[in-house]
Structures are given as structure tokens and as C-alpha cells.
């Protein structure tokens, strides 16, 4: 069964329950973009929903590098990663009117789609977990000094605070999150690969995510 982003798994036909699974007010405190960025994205997405290709291009220019990064990290193949990014922005083009841009950032949406598509490919090819060795060797969730443009200081701060939060996790929890997020492994697969009881893996996921949320909120305040 292929992985699908949460937003696309929910009913969309008229009269369907109004499911709000976007970023909530309290969760916005840990979203990666500033309010001005979100406002700009909101305006662009509104234009995209009306068929404005130039607005799509603007969103692409802002967020495609991150989409390529996450797709490449999961697939380890530039061509496949670029295919995923193409699918991601075509999906955004088709579904932009369904996006609740008042409550979530476009970048979160783009990353979620790209990551889901990449995991779909990974699982379809039966190669999920193929990069575990390299991840275990230290290529995983490590804070990186990125060559970001000087006007993206907020993004630089986000990189630092996410890296700090990850570094604060116990090794086993960090590894579990890494295997799930970047290798596309399910909890059962993680348990098998790491020869860890499934219940322990589930607990590590829960504890790590709760800790990350708390740490990121602390950093924000």
C-alpha cells in the first residue's frame, strides 16, 4: 500500500466531513517559516488556485530546493528525486484550492507531499531502508552549516534550533526518528532492522516526537 499525504487521504467531495488536519494555532509555534513568508505563500497559493502559472513558479522557486533535498535524501537518486518534485508541484497545482493556507505553511505542504511521494517510490521498489548503513554512519539528522542567503536568517535559525533539538534526543530515539523520516521505514520495519521490540520502537517514536515538539517550542519562546 502506498503512502499518501494525510491531506489527500481525507474526503473532499461536497458534504464530506470538514476534516481539519492542518497545522493548528498552537502548532504554528513550531512551523518553520515566518508570518511574512506565510502571508506571501498564502497570496501565491490563492493565485495558483485561479490558474496563475507565474504564482506556481514563484512557489516553486521558494520551496523546490527543500523538496529536492528531502526527496533526494530518501531516494538517493537525483533523477528520481526530481521526478518526485515534479509530481509534487503538479499535485500542488491541481489541489491548491483545497489547501487551508490560513493555518499552515506552504513549505510544510510541499515537504509532506514530496516526502510521501518519495516513500511511495522507495516502498514500490522494495528498497526501503537501503540507506540505513550510511545513515548509521552519521549522514542523518546532523545540524549542517548551510550556504543560505543572507536574507534568510530565520531559516538559518530554524536549522540551528532543529539541529539542537535533535541533538538533545537520546541516541536510540534519534535513530528511530531518522529511520522513519529519512529512510521511509515503518515502525515494524524499524523493529526488525534494529532487532528491537515493536513496542519499544513505538514508544521511542512517541517520546521523541513529544520531546522534539517541546524543545522546538522552548526554542521559539
Amino acid at each position: 500500500m502506498l503512502v499518501m499525504a494525510v491531506w489527500e487521504q481525507l474526503p473532499t467531495e461536497p458534504g464530506a466531513p470538514n476534516i481539519d488536519c492542518s497545522v493548528s494555532r498552537s502548532a504554528v509555534a513550531v512551523t518553520p517559516v515566518g508570518s511574512s513568508d506565510r502571508a506571501r505563500d498564502r497570496q501565491l497559493l490563492a493565485r495558483v488556485s485561479k490558474g496563475d502559472v507565474e504564482a506556481l513558479r514563484a512557489i516553486y522557486q521558494r520551496h523546490a530546493p527543500r523538496a529536492v533535498a528531502i526527496a533526494y535524501r530518501i531516494l538517493r537518486d537525483r533523477g528520481e528525486a526530481e521526478d518526485v518534485v515534479q509530481e509534487t508541484f503538479l499535485e500542488l497545482w491541481r489541489r491548491s484550492s483545497q489547501f487551508d493556507s490560513d493555518r499552515g505553511g506552504a513549505i510544510a505542504w510541499v515537504v509532506t507531499i514530496a516526502r510521501s511521494r518519495a516513500i511511495d517510490r522507495l516502498r514500490a521498489s522494495g528498497t526501503a531502508g537501503r540507506t540505513i548503513a550510511s545513515a548509521s554512519a552519521g549522514e542523518g539528522l546532523t545540524p549542517l552549516a548551510l550556504p543560505l542567503p543572507s536574507d534568510e536568517a530565520e531559516q538559518r535559525r530554524n536549522v540551528a534550533r532543529v539541529g539542537t533539538a535533535l541533538a538533545a534526543l537520546p541516541d536510540a530515539q534519534r535513530e528511530t526518528i531518522e529511520l522513519a523520516y529519512f529512510e521511509g521505514l515503518s515502525q515494524s520495519e524499524i523493529a526488525e532492522r534494529t532487532t528491537t521490540p515493536l513496542g519499544t520502537v513505538k514508544m521511542r517514536v512517541k517520546l521523541a516526537m513529544a520531546k522534539l515538539a517541546a524543545l522546538l517550542k522552548e526554542e521559539e519562546t
Binding site: 494525510v6 476534516i19 481539519d20 488536519c21 492542518s22 497545522v23 493548528s24 498552537s26 502548532a27 504554528v28 513550531v30 512551523t31 518553520p32 523546490a64 530546493p65 527543500r66 529536492v68 533535498a69 528531502i70 533526494y72 535524501r73 528525486a81 526530481e82 518534485v85 499552515g104 505553511g105 513549505i107 510544510a108 515537504v111 509532506t112 516526502r115 539528522l141 546532523t142 545540524p143 549542517l144 548551510l146 543560505l148 531559516q155 530554524n158 536549522v159 532543529v162 539541529g163 535533535l166 526518528i177 523520516y181 516526537m209 522534539l212 515538539a213 522546538l216
Partner: peptide, 24 residues
């Protein structure tokens, strides 16, 4: 929804530790 939103916010942030890659 609150639990999911908070988890989604965290997962979205995780990608920030990766170096961005400019597409061709």
C-alpha cells in the same frame, strides 16, 4: 486534530537539517 497538527509541524521541520538542493 491537535495531536496530528503538532506532529505534522514537527515532521515538517525535520527536513530543515538537510542542505537545500537547487533543481536544474
Amino acid at each position: 486534530r491537535q495531536a496530528l497538527a503538532e506532529a505534522e509541524a514537527v515532521t515538517a521541520l525535520l527536513s530543515e537539517v538537510l542542505p537545500e538542493r537547487t533543481p536544474p
